[in-house]
Design a protein around this nucleic acid. Structure first.
Length: 284
DNA sequence: AACAGGACCTGGTGGC
DNA sequence: TGCCACCAGGTCCTGT
């Protein structure tokens, strides 16, 4: 599911719903996700006040009063369900694939649903978060000051890998995934299969601009809903309606006049993953 | 070192 | 209707 805009939307929803609350009950309903849950996770959460929320790339960071931070990744299929259950609802069992549930003394409930279990949950001391093995090598935030065309150009210099693969590399820039890479490359008019080392400085400048633009628009729209992704409050994100190429193989390119000048959006597979592009706007 | 591919999981969809 | 192959928002790890 979730790339940066969806993770940001989920994190904001959790903040509104849970910030300042104290966890009264926590339970796990599986041994773990991608990796086993930290030993004693539920007990470690109980009694903690939830002091703050942040996002780093596709990770959600939840600061607890006792000095620990919950590190949460939603993988491919992770969802967060937020509610204020009645007494009767509290007695209900966890939903299918709801692997972690917390309740607060203030009456809120938060369930982590992840059918495919590609996500992860860790609990680390706040001092160790930056050095966390999964976070330490992560590149700059695409909406932050450290990310720009020259940064991308430096990362792409001499590389023969595709620009698509470069943008998916979380060490280069944090938070992009398969959808927004296709969208950003379309907007910047760069073919996804071009070698990263062959992209010009001007093109990298435009690419960085378009990465920021598409992510900003998607966050404003509450992310993209597809399959079962919804915002934590149950609302649908609606950026999927703004996709110009992703998932639109065979459809008309939004910036082309149509046949015979352009046959529309094409799909190719790059290292096992689909890329969508317009062959007329994005030359190989 | 850089790169491609497999691996980890479940569920939905479309074809036969 | 049933079965099966294929596809899916991620990313770590291994082998070349």
């Amino acid at each position: 599911m979730p790339e940066l805009p969806e993770v940001e939307t989920v994190m904001r929803g959790m903040r509104v719903h849970l910030e300042g609350h104290t966890i009264s009950r926590a339970s796990t309903h599986h041994t773990g996700l991608r990796w086993p849950f930290p030993p004693g996770l539920a007990q470690a959460l109980e009694g903690q006040r939830i002091d703050g929320f942040a996002r780093r790339g596709k990770y959600i960071l939840i600061t607890l009063s006792g000095g620990n931070v919950v590190v949460l990744h939603l993988g491919m299929s992770g969802r967060v369900l937020l509610s204020r259950p009645t007494q009767a609802e509290r007695a209900a069992p966890a939903a299918l694939h709801e692997h972690l549930v917390i309740e607060t003394g203030e009456g809120a409930r938060c369930g982590l649903v992840d059918p495919r279990r590609f996500g992860m949950v860790d609990l680390v001391p706040v001092a160790g978060v930056e050095g966390h093995r999964l976070l330490a090598g992560m590149g700059p935030e695409p909406l932050g000051n450290r990310f720009d065309g020259p940064w991308l150009a430096a990362k792409g210099r001499g590389r023969r890998t595709s620009i698509k693969a470069l943008l998916l590399d979380q060490r280069v820039v944090a938070g992009l995934g398969n959808i927004y890479v296709s969208e950003a490359l379309f907007r910047a008019r760069i073919h996804p299969a071009r070698a990263a080392g062959e992209i010009s400085g001007a093109e990298y400048d435009e690419l960085a601009t378009q990465v920021r633009a598409v992510l900003g628009e998607a966050i404003a729209a509450g992310g993209s809903s597809l399959r079962d992704y919804v915002q934590p409050d149950g609302e649908l994100g609606y950026f999927q309606h703004a996709w110009r190429v992703y998932g639109r193989e065979g459809a008309g390119c939004p910036d082309c006049p149509g046949p015979p000048a352009c046959d529309g959006v094409e799909r190719i597979t790059q290292s096992g993953r689909s890329s969508f592009f317009c062959p007329r706007q994005q030359e190989a």
